[in-house]
């Protein structure tokens, strides 16, 4: 497999903030690669280092074998970049925006129409509308069309689904699957942990450090502790009780359940039920649950857990 993006020992500082701290990763051709982490983790800095808008303070970034500092001019036409904030011209129409981006890269809408067709088709009825007057979902589709119009080899999407409702998010990921079939390498960042499973490989990132890079399945497999899902009449009361329970290692709400692990052992369910009963927690249901990426992410955020796993 051919490596298309390679970062070696990359660090980036802003004043006293270490935005990225000695980061290494590789993305292979045709891959759908996710960068998953909360606000402030360093996702946007990472994208700007790849797209040559920032220069690393340490280490190097290469894109298709080209150095991001010395050969940035050659790299730029190979990339399509959709920034996190809507950055198109609000006072140009849909079609004018698309034409503008096509001409900047020395091409035309017609010559690459086939590639953007599945996305742009839904926008075409509004092609004379000003970009600023589009709904959120339509803006997103236009931004994606503009990022694709010069047929880039690599597509960089910085938080395309942030603040977007569950249905539109689903649709967006379906569009990405179609683009992937065209052979475009896609690097996409998101703060929604549940979107990790839609990627082939993901990098979990927090405080400028990559916690882990692997397939979503392998990342979840890294969660070794037996995990229980506990439900009660009042989730708040249940949480308070579990925090007071000396054997609790972690108790985190996940939807209607609280995901629960015990320190260094398989939970004794009878003992746990007894304790909750004494604490006056009613309607307790305990089931065994499969961990999710989010369980693993939280475990990785706490260094103590890692020491236990490695012990």
């Amino acid at each position: 497999m051919k490596t298309v993006v390679k970062a070696v020992g990359v660090s980036k500082y802003f004043a006293n903030v270490n935005a990225l701290d000695n980061v290494d990763f590789e993305v292979t051709e045709g891959e759908l690669f996710g960068v998953i982490g909360p606000d402030g983790a360093g996702k946007t800095t990472l994208f700007r280092l790849i797209n040559t808008l920032l220069v690393p303070d340490e280490g190097s970034v290469t894109v298709l074998g080209l150095d991001s500092v010395y050969e940035y001019r050659k790299i730029r036409p190979l990339l399509g970049y959709m920034p996190g904030r809507f950055s198109l011209y609000q006072d140009l129409t849909v079609e004018e925006n698309l034409n503008f981006f096509a001409s900047v890269f020395g091409t035309t809408i017609e010559s690459n129409y086939e590639l953007i067709k599945p996305i742009y088709r839904q926008l075409e009825p509004f092609k004379t509308r000003l970009a600023g007057a589009l709904s959120g979902g339509m803006k997103q589709k236009l931004a994606l069309s503009c990022a694709l119009i010069h047929k880039p080899r690599i597509l960089l999407l910085d938080e395309p689904t942030t603040g977007v409702d569950a249905v539109s998010r689903k649709e967006f990921w379906e569009m990405l699957k179609v683009l992937k079939q065209e052979g475009i390498t896609i690097i996409v960042s998101t703060p929604y942990m549940d979107e990790a499973k839609l990627c082939e490989r993901v990098a979990l990132i927090q405080d400028g450090k990559i916690l882990q890079i692997d397939s979503p399945e392998s990342i979840v497999e890294g969660f070794k502790k037996p995990l229980l899902g506990i439900k009660a009449k009042s989730t708040y009361q249940l949480l308070q009780a579990l925090k007071a329970y000396p054997k609790t290692n972690s108790a985190q709400p996940f939807g209607e359940y609280v995901h629960y692990t015990e320190k260094n052992r398989t939970p004794d369910q009878d003992e746990l039920r007894d304790f909750l009963k004494k604490q006056g927690v009613y309607d307790v249901q305990v089931v065994s649950v499969k961990p999710t990426i989010e369980d693993r992410f939280m475990e990785l955020m706490d260094p103590q857990n890692e020491e236990e796993n490695n012990a």
């Binding site: 606000d39 983790a41 942990m193 949480l239 985190q252 989010e294 939280m298």
Partner: peptide
């Protein structure tokens, strides 16, 4: 809670409770 890390997001909900 938009964009907040998973642990902080849950702490915020505890504050809501």
């Amino acid at each position: 809670t938009g964009g907040v890390d998973p642990v902080t997001r849950r702490q915020f909900w505890e504050q809501i409770y």
